[in-house]
């Protein structure tokens, strides 16, 4: 191979690459028979040969709810029967959002071996990641049921609305993965950046505290406030305000549009970067 100082880089025609990227997004989605079992396999593998298996996910969230609940309940002078359900549902939903976010940079990096072995819609790995995190969410719902039982509250039928919220969060998770998965393959600092951003957002998003106790601007300009609320509010038996829905839909639209544009344009480059 010749090492050259590349000054005469041939500019490839754009449309062909865009077509390839778009086809990749769709063809990956069609292969649910592959990504669904792979997602199950991921969850199983992480906890293989442990007695509790995937219910370690549930247990560790339960411990976190109890620990944070007691400390912050006292710190913020909250009644536990009021605060614990709020905290538990917040942590369940945040668990989904934050793992979708922090795992997103690795969707292609982690699959580099397979990507170089066989031609494949790369988006398959991305849908696998989203589904894996939805499976984890399902395990965490056990905590929700325990909280309902212990504190004896009834959210009512409105709880079904949370499903729509989960779909919105899942779409955002896919968008994160298209965007961060791609740029992380090229710039290897991005995964660290995402981890740190995730940590920051955990503290400035109303999970531990209530929205009205903080200056309005802090939560109003934080997109995660809305993504969290559209799932958490129905779980607590409250209706979601129209404004929150509008914001959530707007955020999702922008997120999907930007990530699709970037992915479609640069998808062909991913195997070169790995």
């Amino acid at each position: 191979m010749t090492i050259t100082n590349d000054t005469t880089r041939a500019r490839p025609e754009k449309p062909r690459f865009a077509q390839l990227g778009l086809a990749d997004m769709v063809q990956g989605l069609v292969r649910w028979r592959l990504w669904a079992p792979l997602a199950w396999m991921d969850v199983r593998q992480r906890y293989r040969r442990s007695i509790l298996g995937p219910f370690w996910i549930t247990l560790s969230l339960g411990i976190m709810v109890l620990g944070l609940g007691v400390v912050y309940g006292a710190l913020l002078h909250q009644e536990l029967h009021d605060y614990l359900p709020y905290l538990a549902t917040g942590l369940i939903v945040w668990g989904l959002i934050s793992s979708l976010l922090t795992e997103s940079p690795y969707v292609f990096i982690a699959a580099d071996n397979t990507i170089k072995q066989i031609p494949f819609p790369l988006s398959t790995f991305l849908y696998r990641q989203v589904v894996r995190n939805l499976i984890v969410l399902a395990h965490n719902l056990a905590i929700y049921l325990i909280v309902i039982a212990v504190f004896g509250f009834n959210p009512g039928w409105i709880v079904i609305g949370a499903l729509a919220g989960v779909v919105i969060v899942g779409l955002n998770g896919a968008a994160f993965a298209f965007f961060f998965g791609l740029i992380s393959a090229r710039f290897r600092d991005i995964p660290q950046l995402v981890v740190n951003a995730n940590q920051l957002f955990f503290f400035i998003t109303p999970i531990l505290f209530r929205r009205q106790t903080m200056p309005g601007w802090l939560t109003a300009y934080n997109p995660f406030t809305y993504l969290l609320d559209i799932v958490r509010e129905p779980m607590l038996g409250h209706s979601v305000t129209l404004f929150t829905w509008e914001m959530a839909v707007a955020i999702t639209t922008v997120n999907l549009a930007v990530s699709t544009l970037i992915y479609v344009r640069y998808r062909w480059r991913i195997p070169y970067w790995l």
Partner: peptide
């Protein structure tokens, strides 16, 4: 001087 001066390996020419 220029950001286009990437070092490249020509794998297929």
């Amino acid at each position: 001087a220029s950001q286009n001066h990437h070092i490249c390996v020509e794998a297929l020419n």
